[in-house]
């Protein structure tokens, strides 16, 4: 490549990195700047009088801490459910050829052609009857429906990547199928399982629609922010947006090695 070509290439790359990073930086500045910063005119690119207090003020607003807690619970449960349901199914897809395997795979893939969160609408009635309405558990059930297809396909890929012979060797040396899974398969699959758990967490943490439909008082953070959006002062919105973003970025960083395993399945 020529010098000018290389220069052009790297300019493009740097510009695109800035396109991603600068807005995050700026909402961070907004979140820590409080009211004064939000209304200062004109703004400079550098932060002025930022302090942690501004975020703490936001967190002390009635309902925010509770909503954050609900989000954590719902996301944690989603993580748990999608793994508990998805990993065995993924294992079955990876290790057995059985009648109906293709039908099951199809059903899992089919969920992607549907805007799943919208299916929360009819669930409201049943949830009210069963007491699941307005609970993080209820929200997590719908979020599990979102995350489960991914968890199933990702873990199937994961188990496929662990040679069958490892398990067979364990059987020959005296393990039952269950013991072989515990002693050999799980330790080898652990990082990947953790990655898909984190992924399920992020799906739930970020979901807005179903969470808003299925809660009134026990809002998740996204649902809370959505409902108070129009009445809350603008710097609170920045603080809320920033708090939403931070865990996601940390998680995506944690699973960066598995990004392709996680999202690559969408291309199959």
């Amino acid at each position: 490549m020529t010098r000018s070509g290389r220069f052009l290439l790297w300019s493009g790359i740097v510009a695109l990195c800035a396109w991603v990073l600068v807005p995050i930086y700026l909402i961070g500045v907004g979140a820590f700047g409080g009211r004064a910063a939000a209304f200062r005119w004109p703004k400079g690119i550098l932060p002025v009088n930022t302090s942690l207090d501004q975020i703490l003020v936001f967190l002390r607003i009635e309902g925010v801490a509770n909503a954050a807690m609900n989000s954590l619970i719902a996301a944690g449960l989603t993580m748990l459910f999608s793994l508990l349901l998805g990993a065995p199914a993924g294992y079955a897809l990876a290790r057995f050829s059985f009648r109906g395997a293709d039908a099951f795979r199809l059903m899992v893939l089919l969920t992607r052609a549907f805007p799943l969160a919208i299916l929360a609408l009819p669930l409201t009635v049943i949830f009210i009857k069963t007491g699941l309405y307005d609970t993080p558990l209820g929200v997590s059930l719908v979020h599990t429906a979102l995350a489960l297809p991914f968890a199933t396909l990702v873990t199937a890929g994961l188990f496929q990547g662990i040679p069958r012979e490892f398990e067979e060797a364990a059987w020959v040396f005296g393990c039952t199928r269950f013991q072989a899974i515990r002693k050999v398969v799980l330790p080898l699959a652990l990082p990947g399982l953790a990655a898909s758990a984190v992924f399920a967490f992020v799906i739930s943490w970020n979901e807005v629609f179903a969470a808003s439909v299925l809660t009134v008082r026990e809002r998740t953070l996204t649902a809370y922010l959505l409902t108070v959006l129009s009445e809350s002062p603008i710097h609170y919105r920045f603080a809320g947006g920033f708090i939403l973003i931070v865990p996601s970025i940390v998680f995506i960083f944690a699973v960066r090695r598995y990004l392709f395993a996680l999202w690559g399945v969408t291309s199959r």
Partner: peptide
């Protein structure tokens, strides 16, 4: 570069709206 470019993967649409609001 790939990591930076994929950061928005973890950002919800609500948060993205708030970012651009800022």
């Amino acid at each position: 570069v790939l990591w930076i470019w994929t950061i928005p993967l973890g950002v919800s649409d609500l948060a993205a709206g708030l970012v651009w609001l800022a």
